[in-house]
Simulated scan of single mutants.
Amino acid sequence: MHPGVRSSGMLRELTDAELVTLTMMQAMLGVTSEAGWLRHAHAHLRHLFPCLPKLPGYNKRPCKAAKLLRRVTRTLATDTSVWSNDVWILDSTPVDCASHSRFFWGFRLHLVCTLQGLPVAFTLA
């Protein structure tokens, strides 16, 4: 039987646990391109993840699982020695919205990190 196909013939989806593992691997390896990451995963990790989706399907899954990904990221972060560092840094960047005005109309993405670059928190304002 083909990997990822159930006995009923329906294609099995990537589980939440597999999704979390893939996104954490992508982040820890510093791969910023989802298309590049999926090419790498299809070439080298297919035996571990037989139900890898194509790019359009993969793009939607992390957005839907954002709450779960934040919880896992925070759990992993609090388990490191850099979490207890008493110095954190804050940075923000504009996220533009389409506008014909010369003024900035949009959001700002605020990110709090440790000095080693570990994300602690983020928000859109």
Rank of each mutant, 00 (worst) to 15 (best):
H2G: 03
Y58P: 12
H47G: 14
L76K: 13
L111H: 01
T23P: 10
L48V: 04
A43S: 02
D91C: 01
R6I: 04
C51N: 05
G9A: 11
F122R: 15
T93H: 03
T73N: 09
L55K: 07
G4Y: 01
T93Y: 04
T32A: 08
A98I: 08
G30P: 02
V31Y: 11
T23A: 11
A27D: 00
E34Y: 09
Q26K: 15
T80Q: 07
M25C: 04
S101N: 11
W83Y: 03
A65S: 09
S8A: 05
P94C: 02
K54H: 15
F49L: 15
P94V: 04
V112C: 13
T75R: 14
R39P: 01
P56K: 15
C113V: 15
V120T: 12
S7E: 07
H42E: 15
E34K: 15
G36L: 14
L109P: 06
T80W: 03
H47M: 12
A43F: 09
L118Q: 08
M1H: 13
A17W: 11
W88A: 09
Y58C: 10
H42L: 14
S8R: 07
G9L: 13
S81D: 07
S81P: 06
C97Y: 00
P50H: 02
R74W: 12
R61Y: 07
C113T: 15
H110R: 13
A17D: 10
Q116I: 11
R71K: 02
R61T: 06
T93S: 03
W83V: 04
L22N: 00
L109R: 07
F103D: 14
A43P: 02
P62L: 04
T75K: 13
R102L: 07
H110Q: 12
A43K: 10
T32C: 05
L109E: 03
P56F: 13
W88F: 11
L124F: 15
V5G: 04
V112W: 12
H40K: 10
R61G: 04
P119D: 02
P53R: 04
T123L: 05
N59G: 02
V20M: 06
C51W: 00
V20S: 08
H40T: 06
K64I: 08
A66V: 08
H100R: 14
E13F: 00
A43V: 01
H2M: 03
A98C: 04
M28C: 03
A98N: 04
A65V: 09
R46M: 01
G36N: 11
T21L: 05
C113P: 10
P94G: 07
P3R: 06
A35R: 09
R102F: 03
E13P: 06
V82N: 03
W88P: 01
G106M: 05
